[in-house]
Design a protein around this nucleic acid. Structure first.
Lengths: 350, 350
DNA sequence: GCGTTTCGACGAAGCGCTTCGACGGACGAG
DNA sequence: CTCGTCCGTCGAAGCGCTTCGTCGAAACGC
């Protein structure tokens, strides 16, 4: 493998001149630069990543701490990871995967100290997350996907749950729905400090109250069976329900199945609006679900960009952002039963 | 950040002795080793990854070239990636993500030359894949997930499509099914040289013929709509069909929907056995699908282990392996219509 | 015309580690 | 008691690059 020294010899210049030509840190005359570029091309030269990293104290590696979930990763996570990796690459960085859960803060600290990563992206932060503290103390640039309890000055990008739940409620209310239930993630997720469970619930409750409506929210285990039971519970609590907002993909399938089994047609009798969904999930139901799908790819891109602005002072800094979910029309939402047909159109959710 | 020099000073030994104590490359007395370990603990020492990499010419990084698919990644890919990352970490390696499609062999070559990765894991190899050639020529250790056209001596792990399709057919035949159709991936995937499309089709055809049965295989686009159309096409071709084997998750939902719409009960009238499925997909149908699910996690683990055995001569080498999919019972497969009820049990798939 | 900038290039000192050759002392063999 | 071995340790030479200080020569001002 050709080294920078080889290039220098071939171009009849000193090693350092090659380095400057490559980095642009100091001026190099056009003639010299040309000779160097030729030499590099002829030798197929590629700078050695380790040497460069050692000398510059810049590994050009970003680490992504992702949830090593037992349940397997959902499509949103995959989309996020993929988009993050791609964005990193476009900017000359590598993305390494660090599978660490909230409890593994010490491991994170050790890895960070090895200087392998210039910055860290932290997915699925819990409300109280020791990993964040570790990163903060270590002084490594980092960006959270999600937010810790205190909505502090810590750099983050996140889904805008308030906006998303409000959009969902608004969409349904415009169609005449007044009795709407919310199928949330499980109690177990809440116990783990999984933030979306709280933020979405609060958002839904607020959105309903704001419109003078009674919110019916339920935390439901991530299983079709629990989804079926949720329908039973919620319909008992409020028989006049005409719509469900769901943020629990697996349970949603149970909800659909149970409603159909009870002879309730979707969307004629009951509407279902599934929020924060993974790509393609809507299509897997019959009828296809109307969804507000999670902006996984966008989060990945923005997260990396934000992190890079922290790592590399020369890039424009980007502010903390909240991204709402995007409406993807399906066939599971219709005007509330009993409404005049001229209300038939579905207004945009935004 | 403490350096090895700091540790050496504190433990009153030379730099090199610390290095030997850490690596075990040369003997170090117990007393000395103890002093060194104490010093390391007191300083919170962690060896610098870049320096170590430069000096040893070992980055301790594995690269995973994964399909930067437009369609978004499926659960199997996510499971694979996650398991690969975890296995790498358990062995003291990092996993970096390189999103490159088949056409980006030059980019792969450049990155490899930068010496960032000790070895490369290549997902979703196409039948003819320039990336493999590049890796081969560069002399980097690599392992393919999947296989190229010539079933050569190239290191790989893969799903055992023959076995999986044969298991599927066997399972159905034991239940009395004689007219079975296969819903494959799309023609487009075949045109891209996507190997599973071919291997599974060949496997299915062979499995049917071996039993004296007529195979009905169809390549179907990855959409529910195409799945519905496939049902129409196949039922027209062979009205006596009692079972579908599907290897196309999105289309499968269309298949289910179309059958139900035609008043055909699943599994009473028609059985559906979905193969090479992502985790959790079965539960998303109503009734839940019986599946042979893809061993994503196992492939990830074995792929990394194989690669490490190539990278690091001191590890036991592992042979090329083919892993079959695993039966996950659901409620979409039953004895063929018209069969006696005493045949009611579902035999194990192998 | 001479001193002073400015520009472009050079040499050398690291970055923090691995690894090779060497060496002193303890120990067994003769 | 002496010589050869082996064990444990040390010093130094890189690994391939970045970056600082420096310096010659061309360009400039008065």
């Amino acid at each position: 493998m050709a080294t920078m020294q080889d290039v220098a010899r071939r171009a009849q210049v000193s090693l350092s001149t090659v380095s400057y030509a490559l980095s642009g840190t100091r001026p190099v005359s056009d003639a010299t630069r040309r000779r160097i570029e030729e030499a590099m091309a002829e030798l197929g030269y590629q700078p050695n990543a380790m040497a460069r990293g050692l000398a510059s104290r810049r590994s050009h590696v970003l680490a992504l701490i992702y949830p090593a979930m037992e349940k397997g990763l959902g499509g949103t996570v995959a989309e996020f990871v993929s988009s993050a990796a791609e964005t990193a690459r476009e900017n000359g960085y590598h993305l390494v995967l660090w599978p660490f859960r909230t409890t593994q803060a010490p491991e994170v600290r050790d890895l960070v100290r090895q200087g392998m990563a210039d910055g860290v992206l932290l997915m699925e932060v819990a409300l109280d997350d020791a990993r964040v503290d570790v990163l903060h103390e270590a002084g490594v640039p980092y960006t959270m996907i999600g937010r810790t309890r205190d909505v502090s000055d810590r750099p983050s990008v996140d889904i805008d749950f308030e906006r998303t739940t409000d959009d969902a409620v608004a969409h349904l209310v415009e169609l005449g729905h007044e009795h709407v239930a919310f199928v949330n993630h499980s109690q177990a997720s809440a116990d783990d400090g999984y933030a979306p469970t709280f933020r979405a619930e609060e958002g839904f409750v607020a959105a309903m109250r704001r419109r003078g409506l009674e919110p019916h929210a339920l935390r439901v285990d991530e299983s079709p069976r629990a989804g079926r039971e949720a329908v039973a519970t919620l319909l008992e609590r409020e028989p006049r329900l005409t719509a469900f907002v769901t943020m629990n993909e697996i349970a949603t399938f149970g909800v659909v199945a149970e409603l159909q089994q009870r002879g309730l047609a979707i969307p004629a009798d009951i509407s279902i609006l599934s929020i924060v969904t993974s790509p393609g999930v809507g299509e897997m139901s019959n009828p296809p679900l109307t969804t507000l799908h999670a902006p996984g790819a966008e989060l990945g891109r923005l997260g990396v960009q934000k992190l890079l602005s922290l790592v590399d002072g020369s890039r424009p800094s980007t502010p903390n952002v909240l991204i709402p979910c995007v409406l993807e029309p399906g066939s599971s939402v219709a005007p509330a039963a009993g409404r005049a047909p001229d209300d038939d159109r579905e207004p945009a959710a935004r």
